[in-house]
Nucleic acid binder design. Structure first.
Lengths: 119, 119
DNA sequence: TTGCATAGGGATAAATTTTTCCCCTATTGT
DNA sequence: ACAATAGGGGAAAAATTTATCCCTATGCAA
């Protein structure tokens, strides 16, 4: 595992939530798990731009942060299902707020982002 | 400027908001500017863990994304003030939602994060 | 006259995150 | 035998983000 060289700072609420949500795909993972896409392979299909590896890594982190739980069924071929914990579920309204803002300003954002990524 | 090699994806609202808020210090910059800390030097003092350089870079990006405006006063020593645009102001409730969630679960989060960063 | 404050930028290094590639388990179907 | 499916993980490379260092300029205070 990677060993951090610059210390964490956990001063305020924004630092704290940042620590658990930072990661390119974490918010989407939580979102799709909440929507009922529980198995790793489903999640990989839902998020095809992410490498399989990172999804696994980020799922592990979400689990370590107690936002999701992992259930392994002892069958072959293997079956695994993730679910939100109660704690994780409290994040859903926050994620909705993010997604809604993005949706509401979709047109404008797309233009702005594309324009500013030209130069 | 850095030239991206992996294309952006701007499919859903979460992608879009991610594009403008991703960046270690951007949320805090918006927050403090909203609180009235407008000058670069104030912001640097408010966010001492960030290097001066990155704050400038991220302020520029926020400006390019039309979330803040920059006013340069032609005086010596130089004086600059940032303000939220109307568009940027619409983000404040979203940022509050993030910060509040972190504050509400402060104890728990601090423990979880420290525990999981041990090993 | 040296030092500090103000604002900003270039070049380069370091830190961190994500991707790529390859390998392993076990069963079912061809 | 061999591929496909389902889930994982190590090692190293590539991508991306942040940090460090040094330089510009002016006016004011010790």
């Amino acid at each position: 595992m990677y060993e951090r060289k610059i210390p964490l700072n956990l001063n305020c609420g924004l630092d704290l939530i940042g620590e658990v949500l930072y990661g390119k795909w974490k918010i989407r993972l939580l979102w799709f798990i909440n929507e009922g896409h529980k198995r790793p392979s489903e999640l990989q299909r839902k998020i095809p731009d992410a490498s399989r590896r990172v999804l696994n890594i980020q799922l592990k982190e979400l689990e370590a942060h107690e936002l999701i739980t992992k259930k392994i069924y002892p069958v072959v071929p293997p079956k695994v299902e993730y679910s939100l914990t109660d704690f994780g579920r409290t994040l859903i309204p926050v994620i909705s707020a993010l997604g809604n803002w993005g949706d509401e300003h979709e047109e404008r954002l797309r233009n702005i982002i594309l324009k500013s990524s030209q130069n």
